[in-house]
Design a protein around this nucleic acid. Sequence first.
DNA 1: CAGTGGTCTAGACCACAGG
DNA 2: CTGTGGTCTAGACCACTGG
Lengths: 232, 232
Amino acid sequence: MGIQINNWQAIQEEVLRRIHAREWSPGELIPNESELALEFGCSRATVNRALQSLADTGLLDRRRRIGTRVAVLPVSHATIKIPIIRQEVEERRLKYSYGLVQQELATAPVSVRAVMAAPKNARILHVVAVHFGDGDPYVVEDRWINQQVVKTALDVEFDKISANEWLLHNAPFTHGDTTIAATQLSDQLAGLLESEAGDASLQLTRTTWDGDLAITVVKLAYAPGYKMNTEM
Amino acid sequence: MGIQINNWQAIQEEVLRRIHAREWSPGELIPNESELALEFGCSRATVNRALQSLADTGLLDRRRRIGTRVAVLPVSHATIKIPIIRQEVEERRLKYSYGLVQQELATAPVSVRAVMAAPKNARILHVVAVHFGDGDPYVVEDRWINQQVVKTALDVEFDKISANEWLLHNAPFTHGDTTIAATQLSDQLAGLLESEAGDASLQLTRTTWDGDLAITVVKLAYAPGYKMNTEM
DNA sequence: CAGTGGTCTAGACCACAGG
DNA sequence: CTGTGGTCTAGACCACTGG
């Protein structure tokens, strides 16, 4: 018995308040779902909905038979949106433009061949392009495309539409993994980004998969000074 | 009528399969919940659970009265785990150690004073420390702590426990925002990281809030070569 | 074994948005 | 007004796990 709360968002807020006020301390077991349902005057399913949601974000740790604990370390999950580059540029209120640098079949480095399971002498579609914001270089896209998987890619001219955008519309993917690092610009990248060689550049390397087949490997080298933001 | 699927994960997989196989194309309306419930031979609530979950990840776009569409652009949300640094080091199977460089009250830069709403001449707790993995510098933690909010922080000796860890255990927070950038190492940071000035370093700047009060501002400068990984 | 969360069901009503 | 998703309920059974 207690207060009357019967929507799951309000229950979630109340739980958050109690955790934050240390009424329930990290590591501590909180009352079980039935007790909370009684206290809030709602059904157990509603409590479950609220607690599930908090467990998804990592704030609670739930186990059958054991109960629900406040997570000891709030492993914050910051989320990064990875949109189409054109859209990212436009969200920063910059005028978007795009230039193709190179499109050819080439011998890929071993790191790319490995994930694509391609033979040593395979010639793989390689596309290099620069995305601009208000006329200034924004990011260099250096991409290898597995034409075994995306068979129509060979016939596309990537001077009008970027490979980034074309692939999102034409190559369904199931998952991807991304590495974020800081690198010093090579002479070539510095030229494309109109910067100095040696400047620090944020670099994302992403492999996109369709099941166990690698669709594409892309290296994005951002212009010096670029900042990526995320919230939690 | 149709197949018998009565758990929400299986329904989710079937929906994913249809989207991926382009049976349901991007932008297209899919059947409503009642129809799917009938087809799968389960209740509408179960279908709802599956579709809710997909909408959360951005793959579906749901609107009352309108229906459920396959999202046109799969804005992938990659999540980055932000754990305690000690834990991050240990997950990489490195032996963790820690050294305090500096702990003092100092005049903060205007960017820090601004978010903490501190007066111009305020002296704010400043802690600089280095985290090591297998004896090699891993990251430099340069932190300002708002002692107006975390009043006990002034009495803590941050030579045994890092400010990072102490705050997570003692200062409840509601949210935070993080900026990721690549910078060239200053002489001072290069010295602490045992690297060369000018090397590219991944740098995270995070402000952590308790409601509308800034608890702490931290700048993490990672040793050159550090890579951050994320999946989607 | 018992007690916890995980899930499903059937039904109900609400909230929203277009006509 | 109608049709959609959003949510709640009461009850049921299952799945896991420590004793």
